[in-house]
Design a protein around this nucleic acid. Sequence first.
RNA 1: GCCGGAGUGGCGGAACUGGCAGACGCGCCGGACUCAAAAUCCGGUACGGGCAACCGUGUGUGGGUUCGAGUCCCACCUCCGGCACCA
Length: 887
Amino acid sequence: MSQGVHRERFRFDPTIEPRWRKFWAEQGIFRAGRRAGAERRYILEMFPYPSGDLHVGHGKNYFIGDALTRYYVMRGYDVLHPFGWDAFGLPAENAAIKTGTHPRAWTYGNIRESKSSLDIAGVMYDWDREVTTCDPDYYRWTQWLFLLLYRRGLAYRATATVNWDPVDQTVLANEQVDSSGRSWRSGALVEKRELSQWFFRITAYAERLVRDLDRLEGWPEKVKAMQRNWIGRSEGAEVEFAVSGSDDRITVFTTRPDTLFGATFLVLAPEHPLVQKLLAPEKRAAVLAYVEQARRRSEIDRQSLDREKTGVALGATCVNPVNGAEVPIWIADYVLMGYGTGAIMAVPAHDQRDFEFARANGLPIRTVIVPRGESAPPEPEAAFAEDGVMVGSGAYDGQENRAAGKAITQSLEERGLGRPRVTYRLRDWLVSRQRYWGAPIPMLHREDGTVVPVRETDLPVVLPEIEDYLPRGKSPLASSEEFVRAVDPETGAEVRRDTDTMDTFVDSSWYFLRYADARNDRMIWSSDAIRRWMPVDQYIGGVEHAILHLLYSRFITKVLYDEGLVPEDEPFRALFTQGMVQRRVTTPLETRPEGLLAPESLQKALGLPADPLSVPEMRARLRAESHALVEANGTWAAQSGPITMSKSAGNGVPMGPFVREHGSDVARITLLFAAPPENDMEWSDEGVGGAERFLNRIVTLFGDDGAAIARLREAGAATSADLAEDERPLHRRLHATIKKVTEDTEAFAFNTAIAALMELLNDAQRYRANHPEPTALSAEVAWTMCRLLAPFAPHLAEELHAWFGGAGSVFDAGWPVWSEQALLEEAIEIAVQVNGKVRDRLVVPRDTAEADLRERALASEKVRELVGDRSVRKVIVVPGRLVNVVA
RNA sequence: GCCGGAGUGGCGGAACUGGCAGACGCGCCGGACUCAAAAUCCGGUACGGGCAACCGUGUGUGGGUUCGAGUCCCACCUCCGGCACCA
């Protein structure tokens, strides 16, 4: 039997995988605390909502964390890599409404299913620390946290205009409404409602939240920028205007106190509390009509940019504190009650919005800043918003405007009419939800309208069993009289429980802390445990949480820090945002004699006609909807662009069947090799084939040499001194690969780490063509490769490790170390350039001196030929790289 | 409008602090094995020209710095993401 035929027996066989998973679990290799004395590393992927079946898109996220975990385990760290479930939320409730299953049963069923998917995928976690947010042992502490915030004055109840999702029938936080005014979950246009709700005072932490972003060096710039945008810090001043003929004062916020002399009117938001008081009797009807109209107008309308600016005068005036000028007060809906003070001073000459409003309403425009060296603004038909020199501003004339602004603010402050002020766009976090499947808010309402917290010893406030989950604009919990009736812990009187539940983002804003001590039933966690594990060294998740979850988690962590419960005030030292896995959706078209017909679902989705279309027509229509018309063996189909894999799009490749057919290792290599992990990637069957070939080639190369490799390995590693001349390149490649894989893995460059392993494999395969029998060098390559492979193809690595006679697990075998000496290959190739273009190459010893290189380059026939009779003006020598001859 | 990021072969993508552009893989082309196919193996593959060795061009566009630019500087274009009547 020839070698070649023999080798063909060996192929990568996915059925070996379950055995190794069992082995890892039994050995407890991924249990935190296994190396109690070692340096710790906390690696965490964002926990998911348990939606049941996992697809390979989820897989990518978990494989990244798994690869990192395995790498650090091999490096000898004590690694915490836990998992849990963000298990409260609307899908469970909606399923209950639809099918009658209890949300609890539905959720735990999904958790079981998801967990088994993860197990099949071979992703290893420390399951001893699993958390489930809908478990009373967990939400008890979510409620405890609510009480903590309440005690610190950070949870309060207020009546405010809030976002109402008409589809999910609940209120939403600002972060949960996108810029086009739609709910993050349901996609419905939100409405405004005046409601009394619970808020968390995140604005009290606005300054720290924005300032501390600078300390987060391990975070992507992009995410930090998004948080900065969201918090919207803006420096300026408050200025007080006295209302003429009254004791009232209107406080405005401005970022441009330098333009105060140019303020020709004031504008209040229609909801401003002084509106009712200040309006002149003869204006009453017009003003109230306008207020009513503004109230009705949807958020979208109100924010659309090119709308004509509307407003009405109140009929009152006030006094400009710097020049005593009497200026009229207007209301307009371009001024928002929720930002600053809900009132502005309008400076039409220097603010485009005020300019438009002034033009539309015939109000005066007064220039107070001009470009240096000019006497008027350059553009008479627009506001001049740039910096310049003060004019028409009394004592400040001639000054540079920024300096003048500071001086004006200071002078106002001395007179008690203004002060520097920082404003934030960020609003307080609305946490009440009128839904069933969430943590009940642990507060009690007294008859007199005051509230009292549930006693800590009475936690958890357990979700009651109810009959009807249908949202009716009021929490379903209210239907349980048994739940609602409670006793006042202070007076013993009868009180009513709050019937709202908490936003699920509250549940997820602290789960990473609970992992430190997940089974503690006496306190939220012990101080030893939290000190051992926090902060998270590496957090991994989707960029869609850049603001929502990540901002809330930072806030809660800071509160807990202030309370002395966590050792650091930032939860995540480094953040990695992975890209999504996408897949095109192909929908077959029906071929009719008259042309092609799309199925009804597609007609609806793309707005196609119900009648058949000709091929060119169909192509054009599809193209307009970013679809392609494709044809295969006479059948036509519409193909979408790449769409992120999801349950709703129905384009997920389920993990279970894939892993059964190809194995977890193939899935890993496919996902990690295809592109840098931060990029979105398109899933393709060709990629799967490439991954499978790679693993098969490894098996084929080493397949039947296990015993020989084990023997040679024990005899010791190959050192440069023992190597034959033709072995040096492979030896060097081996050490270069160790270095590359090590550095790339730490930098999340898994694609290039795997590419380096492929290069090593290619070289090893070529080497074998000349050395059919295993050698000391090939044994070293095999042994090293199996360990370098372990983070990315752990099952195969473990199998190889056993074949090569390794004891125990490959994850306890240590990470390979490269030798700098081996990297210094003695013969190197030097490029020879003439005028910057490569014209020749020299093979020289590594330590060839500069002068030698220069001489040899000039001696090159090619160079002499190209230089001809010109004189050599300059020769640049970069040792180890190239020589450039300038002629 | 403001902020952040990205433009490299047919495709995904490589390229350390300025130093041989296109690693690795996919796809495609050719060959070996096979009755044949699949699988596997070997070779080729930026573009244009030439039988060829070779020559020319080439990293979104236009300039610049430099012996040398995908990489640095200036001005633009396009795409993606966030914020946006936020005073």
